[in-house]
């Protein structure tokens, strides 16, 4: 489902002294089936923006289209039609999703969403087991209490809780924050797999290496606005420090190597592997 933002404005706590203009006219489009990253400095409105995609927030003005669904300004949220259908299609994994766990066992917690969306107990548990194996948690976890798990395991359970209802669009807010490097890598390869199976992924992140490696498109946000949608490699060619963004490590390394005289093809670099290939290629295939 393609997603379009059109002149979206949003204010937290309007008409109070605490009012915060989080979105100030956001315009962009997310193509169906893409792996779309959203980057920008802390407090620029990324988390606020993604909550509009499944109608947790409704804009003050402007509209968000998700397939057939239109999220537009209304007085009361229940005036929006078909919200449950929308939420079934668009799964959102929040920043620090481990706060949402509440059932006695891991499998019950993961089966919670499918049951809410109308699956029978048995089917829901089946989906839960599938989702748990996707996030690499085996049967020994099924009957454990989600509160006895480590932080990283809780995060996986919470993510499985959203994967379990197989949303067509998966929105993820900083899934790798606070994970160990291997765990973060596994998490990203999980999302890559899910994307390869046909799910649209929208990823908010501060890690530019992840953007370079996984995303096909990246939107840069600054102070409540979208300043542009780029191809990741194009973005990192430009000077991006004014948006408090930094070059990905591999890219910075390649740039530095190029400055020092090695004729590298920077445009093919996505991760450590492709960097190594590029260096070898520039040496004529032999070291």
């Amino acid at each position: 489902m393609p997603i379009t933002f059109k002149d979206v404005f949003f204010t937290h706590d309007p008409n109070t002294p605490l009012a915060a203009n989080a979105l100030k006219g956001v315009n962009f489009e997310i193509e169906d089936g893409s792996f779309f990253a959203i980057v920008g400095k802390t407090g620029c409105g990324k988390s606020t923006l993604i909550q509009h995609i499944n109608a947790l927030l409704t804009p003050m003005s402007g509209e968000i289209r998700v397939g057939e669904f239109v999220n537009h300004p209304v007085k009361k949220k229940r005036q929006l039609k078909k919200v449950p259908e929308l939420r079934r299609e668009v799964g959102v994994v929040f920043q620090f999703p481990e706060y949402q766990l509440f059932e006695e066992t891991v499998e019950k917690d993961v089966a919670f969403a499918p049951k809410n969306f109308g699956l029978k107990e048995k089917e829901a548990l089946d989906e839960a087991h599938k989702a748990l194996s996707l996030v690499d948690l085996d049967e020994s976890f099924y009957k454990r209490s989600p509160f006895d798990l480590s932080g990283g395991e809780k995060r996986r359970v919470a993510i499985a809780g959203v994967l379990a209802f197989k949303p067509k669009v998966l929105v993820i807010d900083e899934p790798t924050a606070g994970l160990d490097p291997v765990g973060a890598e596994e998490m990203m390869s999980l999302f890559q797999r899910i994307h390869d199976e046909g799910t649209t992924i929208i990823l908010v992140t501060h890690d530019m290496d992840i953007v370079l490696k996984h995303a096909d498109k990246v939107a840069v946000m600054d102070d409540g606005k979208c300043v542009g949608v780029y191809d990741p490699k194009e973005l990192f060619k430009e000077d991006i420090s004014s948006y408090s963004l930094d070059d990905p490590l591999v890219y910075g390394f390649a740039k530095r190597v190029k400055q020092k005289g090695l004729d590298l093809d920077v445009s093919s670099i996505k991760d450590v592997d492709s960097l190594a290939d590029a260096i070898i290629a520039s040496k004529g295939g032999i070291l």
Partner: peptide
């Protein structure tokens, strides 16, 4: 919000 995303009404 997190639970609403999981289909709670």
């Amino acid at each position: 919000k997190a639970q609403e995303s999981r289909g709670v009404d």
